[in-house]
Design a protein around this nucleic acid. Sequence first.
DNA 1: CGAGATTCATGTGAAGTATACCTTTAGGCTTAA
DNA 2: AAGCCTAAAGGTATACTTCACATGAATCTCGTA
Length: 400
Amino acid sequence: MSINNFLEAFIKRESLFKNKAALQSSYIPEEIPHREEQMTLIAKVLAPCLRMERPSNLFIYGKTGSGKTLTVQNTIKQIELIAKREQIPVKFIYINCKLKKVADTEYRLIAEITRFFGREIPPTGLPTDEVYKIFYRTIERENQIIILILDEIDQLVKKVGDEIIYNLTRINTELKNSKLGIIGISNDVMFADNLDPRVKSSLSEEELVFPSYNAIQIQDILKKRSSESIKEGVMEEGVIAKCAAYAAREHGDARRALELLRVAVELAERKTLQHVTLKELDEAEDKIEKDRVLDMVVAQPRQFQLILYTIILISEKSKTESLFTGDVYDLYKTLCGKTNLRPLTQRRVSDVIGEFDISGIINARVISKGRYGRTREIKLVTGEHITAKIKTLLENIFNA
DNA sequence: CGAGATTCATGTGAAGTATACCTTTAGGCTTAA
DNA sequence: AAGCCTAAAGGTATACTTCACATGAATCTCGTA
């Protein structure tokens, strides 16, 4: 079939979607099922800002895909609406702390916040307290309430310590015109326990836990969203139930379930099918995982990619045996010679492996082999054919 | 045989270095009066 | 003389290196039964 034919056919064929946007992760639905309680609490905590009072800081936990971000955003949207109508100067700033090169250090976080007020901050070069001063001045220019939402705050604190949060909460004492409230969102339930008690008490003046969804609730969510976004009768019997079951298996991650559904329909559409069957669902699960990992790999710096490549090579050779930092480093060094890359030190490589572990591409555990020293035991966590995909991808990068 | 010492390979923290980028300042040149 | 541009000076954050010490269980050592 020529491309032209394909495109013609594509236009004539009816889409299986009614409103695809409703399945995308950026979509904020009008209603969030099973989260009424949490929404009211957030609203109660934040409400004082409509009277120009500083709301209590709020700390939220819950596993990924339990609706934390969505619920917060929805509540904010409503408050913003009222604030706008009543001309109350409330400003919400949402920042995801996980994003590399955006908000993963103290400097970058403050710089990023300040950027929300239209003030450009150079990527490096200024002293950090200078950036703080710019931040003060910018928000003090006008009388306003600022609510700062720090998503995945655990990642940030894990990397640079809890002093930032302390500084941020303390800013209020120095502000005259404006007021700052903080909402921290964390996936890690244990996170708060490792905080400095002072920081902890000031951050979690109010606390809120999002329980994971169970299978029935997920199914509920899926039904609701799919009726909004997908045409009637497209989903074959049992597909949604299966989709919910997949998600429930993963501690009730609703985001994942919705993505699964979307991709499954997309796949069916691409195959010019009229219905989505369980087969597409399985393929979708595979595709999502593959895309997620591959995107992550592509985004890594060269050195990181080469280290990952080494790990894949070694784990291929010795399928069952565990592999250790030393082996990786040796092979990595020789590969560096071939690729014309200056090898990093073992110290650094050790850190890189640690970072891979955090990002979830590999699994690295520090073990002691007794008489034979101490090292990290490294395992790939991706499935075999995905690993193969990564490998060819990396080979292309290094041959080019 | 078992408790304690030893050992190995690398984890990990602190301090130092290179690089890239920022602001300030001091010329040096141009321009207008 | 005032204004503007440029380059050097002095400063910072970040990624990485260097140095030095910490770790923890398998193995070894040696005293004891």
